[in-house]
Design a protein around this nucleic acid. Sequence first.
DNA 1: GTGAAAGCGCTAACAT
DNA 2: ATGTTAGCGCTTTCAC
Lengths: 335, 335
Amino acid sequence: MNQVTIKDLARHLGLSASTISRALNDNPSINPKTKKLIHDLAAKLGYEPNVMARNLKAQHSNQIGIIVPEIKHDFFAKVISGIEEVAYNSGFTVIVSQSNEDEEREKLNANSLYMNRISGLIVSVSQTTNNLDHFRNLMEKGVKIVFFDRICDGLDTYKVVIDDYKSSYDAVKYLIATGYKRIVHLAGPQNLLSCKNRYLGYKQAIIDNGYNFEEELVVFGGMHEDDGIRSIKNIIDKGIKFDAVFAVNDPVAIGVSILVKKIGLNIPGDVAIIGFSNNPITEFVTPSITTIDQPAYEMGKKSASILISLIKGKTKLTGSKTIILPSKLIIREST
Amino acid sequence: MNQVTIKDLARHLGLSASTISRALNDNPSINPKTKKLIHDLAAKLGYEPNVMARNLKAQHSNQIGIIVPEIKHDFFAKVISGIEEVAYNSGFTVIVSQSNEDEEREKLNANSLYMNRISGLIVSVSQTTNNLDHFRNLMEKGVKIVFFDRICDGLDTYKVVIDDYKSSYDAVKYLIATGYKRIVHLAGPQNLLSCKNRYLGYKQAIIDNGYNFEEELVVFGGMHEDDGIRSIKNIIDKGIKFDAVFAVNDPVAIGVSILVKKIGLNIPGDVAIIGFSNNPITEFVTPSITTIDQPAYEMGKKSASILISLIKGKTKLTGSKTIILPSKLIIREST
DNA sequence: GTGAAAGCGCTAACAT
DNA sequence: ATGTTAGCGCTTTCAC
């Protein structure tokens, strides 16, 4: 690591370290000629400021941490891109970490990010997270946190979401309007507010449209493909009749599609399917799957810009601490 | 950021900073009782070491940088998970950044990572990268680099890949054995060694099996879905006859599948399709697509473990600097 | 316009 | 077993 330091430049030019530092930071009190001399030598020697030293001095890192369940989900990948976009443009760098849907790992990551003295944190919590102390601790230590999508109650900070309740309500309303009578809901873990709201939206739409809410039509499960396969198989094995499925997310919807096709049922003739998130895959499977588009990239950008305002102490962020971005029902072949 | 420091602990206990430091680092020369006292207070006050300070002192960061074209590609997401796995277990943290297939951005990222004094870097180069100076510079400054998948010539360091040439050769051989006569190859950017090798493998398989290599059956293009759509449309519009397509990767194969279905051709009846990478989507589209499985997670783990050996100075890494991991042809409905 | 000195938090000789 | 001192690279107040 034979890095070039300010001292090296100072020695080469017979100047003091402070002069070099000032010149490099474009301090106006430095003689333009000296400045040029210094800049030229820095370029020639390949000087790069040591961010660790600078940050140590400055008492902050200009780094933003991200914790998401899994980056391989298209949704999270896009959010991360949105965050990076805004962050880079504001002079922040970004550290991404994955919780793998594991509360323990989420804690470790939060801690490791804190040790790196991140200025702020953007989080979508893991499925298994019940205790929020690791976030609370960071907040107490002055780390600003913004949650998106997978938010949770009980933490007083900014949150960026879509209206899960309404999206879900509208999707189910659309199914009913199209003529479907017995709509199954494959729900997600209810400790995630988004899943809970999707469930509640489903329930209310059922009731508001004059149907009976039947508990046997709801299965609580995970958020992966195999959960979808398992849950719908369970319903079928029990002999429960249904003509549509509203899944908590796209992988679960895909799982349903796979099993339903396998046992020879038609989509949407025998069973209609709606997913959630507009994962690209829903467009390419046959039949393509109706879903709800979440503005992932926008969520990332919004989360980052709020976080950066928070970090910079611009507390004049007006209005509610929960920002709701628009979502959209995308109708495809499966309904 | 009112963080608790070693000095705070020292003041509270009437001890010196060095004693605190030693105790916290489990130095055996500290009295067990004092040690316990210190650990307890640290826990009580919520002390967390300041990694920036520690790293500044230690002259290295224990951070590994990653640069990939786009994390949203399933392949890269999995590689990253593999890297994280190994890195965390060896006490390293990971900074992920995306080049977005843009050489300029790749340079910026490399530089920003260097400013953070990363100990090592794992890279899959962008499509548009021609000049490799930004990597060469880092290497000269002592940053260890390992490339994977999208490697490039002219840099003397470790590389983790699959045998693109052979994988491609075998895939085409299989097509020929199955009876296909006129096999189109939608090739990728030839500055990427992997794409070049896939092209060369295709060419050699054609020749070795007694077919004529026809230039009109090869189209050089990008690596996304729309490239696939565009390229195959081009071939069709030109009136060129073909009965199979070997695509440089899965998105391109998906693109071909979309267009081919749209104009009413049967897969594999009229056109067979093979992709590359075993993206999950290839399994779920109808018909499912034959592809070549790359051990993404393993590539990540391998790259990370090599890099960490390099960082730790274990130069007794035996054998070639190019590590070839096994790939596998996955035969599905499209062939 | 430039320099000297101190300090960010931590560690490691070198004392005692 | 513990304390003293110095220094990692950088910035910044206070001098001149």
